[in-house]
């Protein structure tokens, strides 16, 4: 029953701090900001093999993150992997002859799409397709080929 204003102040501070912490977790710690804050447009790339690429894998150019994978599906006719990428709209000067490759960050790291810009004056627009792609390197395949080759050379 005591109407103590310091107590009210402390309760107010406590609740405000708690809510601030929740916001901090939502915006600073999780990926909430990356898909709500930024406008983006979609680019499509077709890979022979997209490896371990997943939805939300990063898309980067020259090591800078410029977007993320939004959808991966299989083209039923060509048996290619169709990867849709959301690119942040401030990066709207991507040349049409840009190469998209699936790389692995570090030896054990996750896979990501790397865009290497070409020299064209035409820039890609929403829902356009990147024509030049380089598939993921599958480690087992690479090792297999290497062993096969060295075995042939020995003969």
């Amino acid at each position: 029953m005591q109407h103590s204003s310091t107590q009210d102040t402390f309760v107010g501070l406590f609740v405000a701090a708690g809510i601030a912490a929740l916001f901090f977790l939502a915006l600073q710690v999780s990926n909430l900001s990356s898909f709500t804050d930024q406008d983006s447009y979609t680019l499509v790339a077709r890979f022979e093999n997209s490896g371990a690429l997943k939805v939300k894998s990063p898309v980067s150019a020259a090591g800078v993150k410029i977007g993320q994978v939004s959808d991966i599906s299989l083209d039923p006719k060509t048996y290619q992997s169709v990867v849709k990428m959301s690119i942040y709209s401030q990066y709207n000067h991507i040349p049409s002859d840009t190469t998209a490759s699936v790389f692995t960050a570090g030896l054990l790291g996750e896979q990501y799409v790397s865009l290497e810009p070409g020299g064209s004056e035409d820039f890609l627009k929403d829902n356009e397709v990147l024509e030049i792609t380089q598939s993921a390197i599958i480690l087992e395949k690479a090792i297999g080929q290497f062993l096969f080759k060295s075995a042939e050379e020995k003969k």
Partner: peptide, 15 residues
Amino acid sequence: YWSQMQTKLDFTDDI
């Protein structure tokens, strides 16, 4: 530290 965290932690799944 922060950017890796942001790409890896999901709002619904984690927070």
